[in-house]
Design a protein around this nucleic acid. Structure first.
Length: 306
RNA sequence: GGAGGAGUAGCGAAGUCUGGCUAAACGCGACGGUCUGUAAAACCGUUCCUUCGGGUUCGGCGGUUCGAAUCCACCCUCCUCCA
């Protein structure tokens, strides 16, 4: 069992800076736990660490796929695990930094994620989507309810995406979706959560969006838009999809920028919800000065020691 | 000074003609939550106060009525146009 540090929290609380600082002091390497930073060319909008900010610390799972590819939790889990192994082999400390709760949890809790992915899954999914388009969400949910009542009980009728995924897994695995294999964690994780006063956090988010615009977010988003970003998973990213209607001439820039800020705030809230309720996190507030990096560092050192 | 128009819950906005079914639609925001291969996704709940029995609301103050956000009088504020 390798000991792994994970720095989690909402967007714009300073996860990146902390992870680099800790890596420097604790002989670590950073693994990004972020569903959008995996994409090349999506730099300013994803607030990806710049080469200068990396300060020579190796960073993993950044810039590993093209914008027209579809990344996934399962792939993240597998790649993060192998990065952890490599880093440990080098005698370094793996430090995960990221805000994608689902990704982080898939890793820390070793979620089985529906078993093996079938190559037909895309077709299966599409077929269900078409059937549901035709017969309605209620019908789709009933299909699931007939095959796996327990799964159906946990998925709202309106949440078509999750209904379809459950149906897909059942079809591929021939087993109920609710019968997920329980696994134990592969490694030992210490979760460091960064947070701060909500008002302050929102202000920081708003400011950061303005800075992103200054740093060329428009050009980056436009390139994605021109590659058909509207229909790509990468194009779902906050900071990108809000700009597409602007490029299409449907809304003005101020409106789009305000929307980015709003979506980012909402996102931060969802992140907080996830980390508060689904994972065991040790919270610190560096923004207000209530806690210090040194405090976190010794907290980690204590944990590493025992 | 004259002529019109408007003031509804955090904001926007219905409801007012045809009084009761209206603590008041809907949207936004805010807050809370769900989550096992798209997760920066997708989806849900709460949102006047409450000791959950009730209590107090629709600019203000009176009035009509069994009953008023809705009808009448007066007052205040804002907007547009004319002078």
């Amino acid at each position: 069992m390798t000991k792994v540090i994970a720095i989690v929290g909402p967007t714009a609380v300073g996860k990146t800076a902390l992870s680099v600082e800790l890596a420097k002091q604790l002989n670590g390497e950073v693994i990004s736990g972020d569903s959008m930073q995996v994409y090349r060319r999506l730099d300013v909008g994803t607030a990806k660490v710049t080469p200068e900010e990396q300060q020579g610390i190796p960073h993993h799972l950044i810039d590993i796929c093209d914008v027209d590819e579809q990344y996934s939790v399962a792939r993240f889990k597998q790649e993060a695990n192998s990065a952890i192994k490599d880093i440990a082999k080098r005698g370094h400390l793996p430090i995960i930094a990221g805000g994608t709760g689902f990704y982080l949890q898939a890793l820390t809790d070793n979620l089985s994620l529906g078993g093996k992915q079938d190559k037909d899954s895309e077709a299966i999914r599409q077929r269900w989507q078409e059937l549901i388009d035709e017969n309605g969400p209620e019908w789709g949910w009933q299909q699931l309810n007939a095959k796996d009542p327990q799964a159906a009980a946990n998925i709202p009728v309106q949440n078509i995406r999750r209904v379809i995924r459950a149906l897909e897994v059942i079809e591929i695995s021939k087993k109920p979706f609710s019968e997920q294999e329980q696994r134990t964690s592969l490694d030992e994780y210490l979760l460091i959560g960064l947070t701060t006063d909500r008002q302050v956090l929102y202000q920081r988010i708003n400011q950061r969006v303005d800075i992103m615009i200054q740093n060329g977010l428009l050009g980056e988003a436009r390139a994605l838009y021109e590659q058909g970003g509207k229909n790509l998973p990468a194009g779902k990213g906050i900071g990108y999809h809000e700009l597409f209607p602007y490029f299409a001439g449907e809304v003005d820039l101020d409106y789009a920028v305000d929307k980015i800020k709003l979506d980012s705030r909402h996102y931060a809230k969802r992140q907080l919800t996830w980390f508060r309720n689904k994972m065991t996190v040790n919270w610190f507030d560096l923004v207000s000065g209530q806690n210090s990096i040194n405090e976190i560092k010794s907290f980690i050192e204590d944990w590493l020691r025992n």
